[in-house]
Each structure stands twice: as structure tokens, then as C-alpha cells.
Write a protein that binds this DNA or RNA. Structure first.
Lengths: 127, 127
DNA sequence: CCTTCACTTAACGATGTCGTTAAATGTAAT
DNA sequence: ATTACATTTAACGACATCGTTAAGTGAAGG
């Protein structure tokens, strides 16, 4: 599935701190490879390959401007990642509620203490 | 920075389709390693290691229940990833905003090629 | 006890990542 | 044309990832 691959490419690209730094830089302004390399502690070939990864994930685009190659942020594919993660929102939004439920369950188990299987453990009620 | 490492761990964990499938499964119910392995085309040791990665990224937690080991979704760390990505929302959400910024940048570069930055926006990450 | 079940760890090989330096490419300027 | 500049590609080494099968753990149960 191309969709899955694209998502993997985006998450994979975002997994590297250097690449996230590059993306952050590009939110300020478009930049050449030299400009992007300057603040980083690595060589230009290394940066060039990071850019290749970012481009492959459609997170940036590159164009020639005379002698230079200008990089531009293309956040469209980041939206896919955001949308994917978004489906989990309720699982962290509701974490406090779930904690309450969990504590209540433990309390209940303490009172009635007998149940099928191993007692006193944090499941039986979820979601 | 530990924060950066955590973010990298989360994105890195999410980069793998199998791990995303496992997380999706865990949104339905807590599950044992066997239950998680069943629908997947890989061996249990392979799944076990995926679970280790997910646990290291704090995306799941594991607890013993007698003979079994129960995995539970812990989406809290996904929130960090969501928050990070969220800062890029305006770049895909507000196309007018972005177009304006671009035009302003071009204009500024045209007028006087010095770098004060017409955008002047937050963000900055370093490793 | 000693086996069985659920799972993890060890050991291995294929492949990918991330850095380096040196050589190639392509555009601009002399 | 030749040289200089910006960037990429090639070649290499160190280390991580992802799968496998085989051997360890630890709790359950005859």
C-alpha cells in the first residue's frame, strides 16, 4: 500500500533530530543547502542526504536557482501523519479518566477479590 | 536532550507498519503477545521485539497476568509527537497564510537582500 | 518434580542508516 | 576554455533494524 509507505516515510524522516532541525529552519525561510549546513555539526554531503530523505517523504521540495538549490518546506504530507496520530487523541485525552477507572477497578477487586484467572491485575475493564 | 530522544523514539516506533498495526489492535482491547502475533505474518520473537520498541517509546506498557503478558496502549507519549507536528499545521492548513509569508519573503529579498525575516515565528530545535 | 505453555533472549544474516572523505556534476564567472 | 563555487554521488566503515530459528526463563498444572 502506497499510503502506508508514505506514512512510514514521513515518520521515518521525522525520527531524526537533524532532519527535524532542518524542517524547523525551513519554517522560517527557504534555504540553500549551504545555509542549512552552516548551523549543523555535520558535513554538507550528510545534509544533502538528509534532504534527499525529506524530499522522498515529500516534506520538502527543491528547485534550482542558478548555482544554488533552494529547499522549501512542503508540510502537506505531515498532515497525513497528524491525521493518523489524531485517531489516538482520545486515548491520551481520556488518560485521566482511565486512571480513575483503573483505580476504581483495583478498589473493587480489593473488596470482592475473587474473579476468574489471576486476581488483582489491571485488566478486565478497558477502553 | 532527553525530550528530543523521546520524540525520536516515538517517531521511530511509528515508522514501522507492523508496529502501527499493533497499536491499532490495542485501541480495541488489551492483548497478549500471542493474540497480537496471530494476525501478523511474522514470528512471535519478531513481535516481541516490536513490543520492546513500543515499550521503550512509552507507547505501550506490559504487565504479567499469570502465564500471560498483557500489553496495553499508552498513548501519552503520542501526544508529544502530535504536539510537535501541530506546530506545522499552519503550513498545510492555512495556505493563504503561507502564500502571504512566501510573497512577503520574496518581496523582502527583492527590496533589500538582508536577513531580518519577515515571518518571525517560533520553533527551534537543536540536538 | 517435570512437563507444558507463553514469552524472551541469543545468535545469525540481509539490509538500511548515518557519518566520513574524495571524486564527479553542473552552473557562473573570468 | 578554465577556474571557482554549490551540491551531489561514490565508496567506505560503524552500527541499528528486521527477520529468522534455537535455546533460555518463569509461571501453571498434572
Amino acid at each position: 500500500m502506497a499510503d502506508t509507505d508514505q506514512l512510514s516515510a514521513v515518520f521515518s524522516a521525522l525520527a531524526d533530530p537533524t532532519r527535524r532541525a532542518i524542517l524547523a529552519e525551513l519554517t522560517e525561510r527557504d534555504a540553500t543547502v549551504s545555509e542549512l549546513t552552516a548551523p549543523l555539526p555535520i558535513s554538507m554531503p550528510a545534509v544533502s542526504r538528509h534532504l534527499k530523505v525529506l524530499e522522498h517523504a515529500s516534506l520538502i521540495s527543491r528547485s534550482r536557482a542558478g548555482k544554488w538549490r533552494v529547499c522549501r518546506l512542503e508540510a502537506a504530507s505531515m498532515r497525513d501523519a497528524a491525521d493518523w496520530i489524531e485517531r489516538y487523541r482520545r486515548f491520551w485525552d481520556a488518560s485521566l479518566d482511565r486512571l480513575d477507572a483503573h483505580l476504581a477497578a483495583v478498589q473493587a477487586a480489593d473488596d470482592a477479590s475473587h474473579r476468574a484467572g489471576p486476581a488483582g491485575h489491571p485488566d478486565e475493564e478497558q477502553q
